[in-house]
Simulated assay, not measured.
Amino acid sequence: MFTGIVEVIGTVSKLEELDTSSSGGGGTSLTIAGAASILTDCHEGDSISINGTCLTVTEFTPETFKVGVAPETLRRTNLGALKNNSPVNLERAVSGSTRMGGHIVQGHVDTTARILSITPDGNALTFRFQPRDVSLLKYVVEKGFITIDGASLTVTAVQDGKDGWWEVMMIAYTQTRVVTADKKVGEEVNVEVDMVGKYVEKNVQAWFAGEGESVALERLVGRLVDERLKAKGL
């Protein structure tokens, strides 16, 4: 789990295609440089978000780390478009003492989105994005959270429909700390919608399916009772 607060911008220093017998299953191996500040407490098997994609560290040095990117991940994200020297947003998985400066981010990319426009507004920039999978627009709400290339941002406007889009505004501070600010119209970004909307949808669907007053409610009440009894030591 992540917060969507980018810790550092790293750089792709090496790309290798993996054969089907490797742990990457025929995907790609990425070596990321310029990551010293987030590797001081690193261990093999740790999770690091690269452009919003949760990946597992397989090797590391004081300055670099290596991950394998599976074919499914390449299909669902923009990582397949990375080249040597491409900049990437990096964030370590949360710890018990992490400040929740952004929102709960899983690092599971839902789709990619294309940049439709970039409009200056004072020293800020308004980005308009159109998702590859427009069905995800139902989870995007004005003033809600959205994760763009691993960065937690606030939605400022939404238009639904088959040609739908949403907008976010990046202040000057954010522009210097995320890779998206340097992208151009037509380029793609990784998108993870706020998972709260997915849970709400599932519970509403259960209610309309006749489970709302029985199964779903019973589970909720049972969990609350168990927690109260445990708190009283019973």
Rank of each mutant, 00 (worst) to 15 (best):
M195V: 15
D226E: 14
Q159N: 12
L55Q: 03
G122L: 11
G210V: 12
M100E: 05
H108T: 13
T126F: 11
G186L: 06
E44R: 06
L153W: 05
L82T: 01
E201N: 08
C42W: 04
L74G: 03
G222T: 10
G24L: 06
I148K: 00
M1Y: 10
L90E: 00
S49R: 02
L220Y: 15
S97R: 12
T119D: 12
D121Y: 04
S97I: 11
Y199V: 15
C54Y: 00
G197R: 02
S117G: 12
Y173D: 12
A216H: 10
K66Q: 13
V8I: 14
G210P: 04
L217C: 01
V196S: 10
I38E: 08
T111N: 10
I148M: 08
E17S: 15
L18N: 08
E91G: 09
V69R: 03
E192W: 07
G25D: 02
A216T: 13
G96M: 12
E211N: 13
K230H: 15
L74M: 11
T64N: 15
F2D: 01
A113F: 10
I50N: 03
I171E: 04
K138P: 00
T40P: 00
A36D: 11
I50T: 07
T56E: 06
G25P: 01
C42N: 02
L136F: 14
S135D: 09
L82M: 09
S37A: 09
S13V: 15
G24K: 04
V6P: 03
E91K: 04
G25A: 04
E63H: 12
G233C: 10
G45D: 08
L30G: 00
Q106I: 11
L217P: 00
G68N: 15
E167D: 05
I171V: 11
V94E: 01
G210A: 07
R99N: 10
F2Y: 09
A231N: 13
D19L: 11
T61S: 15
F65H: 01
